[in-house]
């Protein structure tokens, strides 16, 4: 890529990155506790769960869809995984079960949207309630807790001082970036979101790839559930409430357009980090949760306003 192509491709993300750096500088000035290695790793770890869910959300939003069910899928995969662990099912298989449960819920969304012709909003809204109810039913409303240290390593472990969830997050982003830029799934996700009819007429199996994208989103929710469960040493049927909104926010701040067809995976990572850094920084400064909500909401609105301003400028 020439530098000009690079700017065409990542211009918007570059802007978001500068926003993140600006935020970091501001917090660095305001509090001595922020810019320390231990706190930055802390932020990365806290961001990892939202960041991983937001990857799936980015794929979905690039196809011009939306997935409101991710939080509930986190809860449901989490409790199923937890019960598998407690039934002394070997760790790798239990983890696989967690991923499969998530992917399955996502695929159900996908099938309802493509073959059932439901709008994504409706289908995933339904799944949000169904998966939540299923998690409550499955556990009788009680959390399942207490797991082996082997499993908990997924959240508490460190490799070369770097927390395992951060490593998982980085791996997910590298893979997702490759999938989005270098595979058929990625190429078609953009095409479907950009113009579904034109994609069909170009021979894209829109239904198949759409269903896959929702399946992927579900599977990543399953992965997030694994980390969350390990982190809290407990799987709660009421876990993951409102995670969908955090994931959508990270995606949108990162420059992915809700109209579909546009977005970069790196932008979503920056978006998730902006949210994580904001929360962390506001905690460090001792700002109340009321103000925090207001600030994060404002950042989302400004990010989208900025997006629109940029587009207008290009035209």
């Amino acid at each position: 890529m020439t530098p000009k192509d690079f700017l065409l491709h990542y211009g918007r993300q570059f802007g978001t990155l500068i926003g993140l750096l600006g935020l970091v500088i501001v917090l660095w000035i305001l509090t001595p506790y922020f810019l320390t290695i231990s706190n930055l790793l802390n932020v990365a770890q806290q961001t990892s769960i939202n960041a991983i869910i937001a990857v799936g959300m980015t794929f979905v939003i690039i196809t011009a869809g939306i997935d409101l069910s991710v939080g509930s899928i986190v809860a449901f995969s989490g409790v199923v995984l937890a019960s598998a662990l407690q039934a002394a099912i070997p760790l790798p298989i239990a983890i696989l079960i967690g991923l499969v449960v998530g992917a399955f819920c996502g695929l159900v969304n996908g099938v309802l949207i493509t073959y059932g012709r439901l709008p994504p909003f409706i289908s995933t809204l339904g799944m949000m309630s169904v998966a939540r109810g299923a998690a409550l039913l499955y556990t009788g409303g009680r959390p399942i807790s207490g797991f082996s240290s082997g499993f908990r390593y997924l959240a508490t472990g460190e490799i070369l001082y770097i927390p395992v969830p951060v490593i998982i997050m980085v791996l997910v982003y590298v893979v997702a970036h490759v999938v989005l830029t270098r595979t058929k799934l990625g190429r078609y996700a953009y095409a479907i979101g950009g113009n579904e009819e034109a994609a069909v007429l170009s021979g894209v199996s829109v239904k198949f790839y759409k269903a896959m994208v929702y399946g992927l989103s579900g599977m990543l929710s399953g992965l997030a559930a694994i980390i969350l469960t390990a982190r809290l040493n407990s799987a709660q049927p009421i876990a993951g409430m409102m995670y969908e909104l955090d994931a959508i926010a990270a995606t949108v701040i990162g420059g992915t357009s809700l109209m579909g067809g546009e977005g970069r995976i790196i932008g979503t990572l920056i978006g998730a980090l902006i949210m994580g850094v904001l929360r962390n920084g506001l905690n460090l400064l001792g700002v109340s949760s009321f103000v925090q909500q207001t600030v994060i909401g404002s950042v989302i609105i400004i990010a989208v306003l900025m997006d629109m301003a940029l587009k207008k400028q290009r035209k």
Binding site: A191, G194, E197, A198, L201, G261
Partner: peptide
Amino acid sequence: KSQGLIMILS
């Protein structure tokens, strides 16, 4: 515009 091309793609 609506069927032949995906306007926002390269």
